[in-house]
Design a protein around this nucleic acid. Structure first.
Length: 575
DNA sequence: GCCGTTTTCGGCCCGACTGTTTTCAGTCG
């Protein structure tokens, strides 16, 4: 069984326990265990082979045993029994906003409603009005919620949410009544996919600011409006929360709303153990006196911690590291010396070689790697040998015109079904670098796919494995590959692993980056640009690299072009 | 169900808003 499936079952158990009305802390321990398991880079087989599983904080004897049962037998008696107590459609009702386990339980027990469709029917017959705790408003809101769930998946790419957040933030900052404002929540933490947008502000006139916010042109509907908190839905479908506090509480609000939830719980538990109480309003001692903090750094310091960057606040070891002064100095966009993996109109890009080079130079890069698709990639206009000759000539001309930036000749070669690359060696050796990527037969089983990729890694001409799991966020699941084996082979052979910065990919996932770093595997943050605009996508990649605790030294394209070509040459020397 | 520099038992983060209620439960983050 895949770890992903175990994670799903654990969180489902958590939900079912809530529905059952069990001890909420018991339910929480299952969702916590699911999160912890998801966050560890190791696969299930590695975790269950020794005592490492129960060593994870949040997985004890009980849940550990259940995970082992799932890993060895593929099923879990406890889960099956729990599940059989409820009709199968009941979980989908929980996706409706503002409808939680308590009220779903009432709907099921009193009205025998077992699915979203039945719930809709019951609403239309006004049958909810008779229930305790329900009224006309709730019934209307549930109908609206059903509409919303049907219309969208309720999840958005980071890049899309970011683009919506920026004008809102600018409008707030432009107001004289706003002292400070920032994006918070998962967007500030740079999660690859977000559910909503959180914005925080400091103001002495919160009502006026709320009015400004709720009447912004991008707002479609005001869902909630108070003096310190409002919630709206934008025309594009994303919900936005705005919280406002006075200036002195602002750093606490910013920290609180940035989360993650589990990071906050850990921070507040820590405060509690120190005899303090922490909330979005401040940090208070036993007598209720508030301790002034001018920024987040001072909040962390008050709890005996180094400042933790927002991207790392996932309660995945950052608090322990902050306590031991062992936090990494995270990479930033300015650390990148050059960009690799760029397409042009020769294959499926839309910009010319010169346009791409000019743009990269404007962005301050010292080199750019052109890597169009290879000959078998008919779907993307892959280059035949004659096209390559033509492109190389063109690159040499452009190079003369732009002496300040080095142009590297590369290719994004398909990894063919048998693991070989898509050009003969005589051509491959002419490239400065080769990105090897899977673009076909995604449905292979794990052993086959792993063998296919390992063979590509062993090819002396491979420099980088491109988008190593092939996922499309909100679109296509990653293909099955043993990441551990891939990283081990990459390290051994001196091949880099791509962190593809396209906002739809962001692949390799940040949860594996930390592991790659520990294994000293070189990572390249590549734009996979298909136009001049795509080059700056490396910014998204840097956000994900930071979530994976990467420092400048862990990333290959922070080095200069000479070092990069030496890296490529070194692998060729291996053969 | 998990966990322990107060504890192996008894805790488990904290507050805002809504809708339903006459003081609060449910939901969310």
């Amino acid at each position: 069984m895949e770890k992903r499936e175990v994670v799903k079952i654990l969180s489902e158990i958590s939900t079912l326990l809530e529905l059952k009305g069990e001890n909420p802390f018991k339910s929480r321990s299952y969702s916590n265990a699911a999160r912890v398991l998801e966050g560890t880079p190791d696969d299930l087989a590695a975790l269950t082979s020794d005592d490492r599983l129960e060593g994870l904080k949040g997985i004890g004897e009980g849940i550990g045993k259940k995970i082992r049962e799932l890993a060895t037998t593929g099923t879990l008696v406890y889960y099956e029994e729990l599940k059989s107590g409820f009709p199968p459609g009941i979980l989908e009702m929980l996706r409706i906003p503002n409808l939680g386990p308590k009220r779903v339980k009432i709907l099921y027990e009193k009205l025998d409603v077992k699915s979203v469709a039945e719930l809709e029917y019951a609403c239309n017959e006004n049958r909810l009005l008779t229930l305790p705790g329900f009224g006309e408003k709730s019934q209307d809101n549930i109908l609206k919620g059903i509409e919303l769930v049907r219309r969208s998946s309720n999840q958005f790419l980071f890049s899309d949410a970011w683009e919506e957040a920026e004008p809102l933030l600018e409008a707030l900052r432009a107001s004289r009544k706003v002292a400070e404002a920032s994006v918070a929540g998962s967007l500030r933490r740079r999660k690859e996919v977000v559910k909503d947008i959180d914005i925080v502000a400091a103001s002495e006139h919160p009502e006026d600011v709320m009015d400004l916010f709720c009447t912004h042109t991008s707002v479609d509907e005001v869902l909630e409006k108070g003096s310190t908190k409002s919630n709206v839905r934008l025309k594009c479908g994303i919900a936005v929360d705005l919280r406002i506090v006075p200036v002195e509480a602002y750093p606490f609000l910013l920290h609180h709303m940035t989360g993650s939830k589990n990071h906050n719980i850990a921070m507040r538990s820590r405060a509690q153990k120190m005899g303090l109480k922490m909330s979005e309003w401040g940090l208070f001692d036993k007598s209720g006196r508030s301790m002034a903090c001018r920024d987040e750094k001072e909040i962390f310091a008050a709890l005996g911690l180094d400042e933790i960057q927002p991207e790392m606040r996932e309660d995945m070891g950052e608090i322990e590291a902050a306590e031991e002064h062992a936090l990494p100095a995270l990479i930033s966009r300015e650390d990148l010396a050059g960009v690799l993996h760029c397409h042009t109109h020769y294959s499926d890009g839309i910009s010319t070689v010169e346009e791409m080079v000019k743009r990269a130079a404007e962005l301050g890069f010292a080199y750019i790697g052109i890597s169009d698709h290879s000959q078998s990639a008919g779907y993307a206009g892959g280059l035949k040998e004659a096209d390559l000759q033509k492109q190389w000539k063109e690159i040499e001309q452009v190079q003369r015109k732009y002496p300040s930036i080095r142009i590297l000749k590369g290719t994004e070669s398909d990894i063919l079904v048998d693991g070989s690359l898509d050009y003969p060696d005589a051509i491959l050796r002419k490239f400065d670098f080769v990105v090897a990527s899977i673009h076909s037969r995604f449905n292979m089983d794990e052993d086959e796919m792993t063998a296919r990729i390992l063979k590509a890694i062993e090819n002396p001409y491979t420099t980088i494995v491109g988008h190593p799991t092939g996922r499309l966020l909100l679109g296509r699941d990653p293909f099955k590959v043993n990441i551990d084996k891939m990283l081990t082979a990459a390290r051994k052979r001196g091949v880099a692993i791509e962190l593809n910065a396209n906002p739809q990919r962001l692949d390799l996932d940040w949860r594996f980056l930390k592991k790659a770093k520990e294994m000293k595997v070189a990572i390249t943050i590549n734009p996979d640009a298909h136009s001049v605009h795509g080059i700056s996508d490396v910014e998204y990649g840097c956000g994900i690299a930071r979530k994976g605790w990467l420092e400048a030294g862990d990333v290959l394209n922070t080095k200069d072009a000479a070092e990069l070509t030496r890296f490529a040459e070194a692998h060729r020397g291996h053969s």
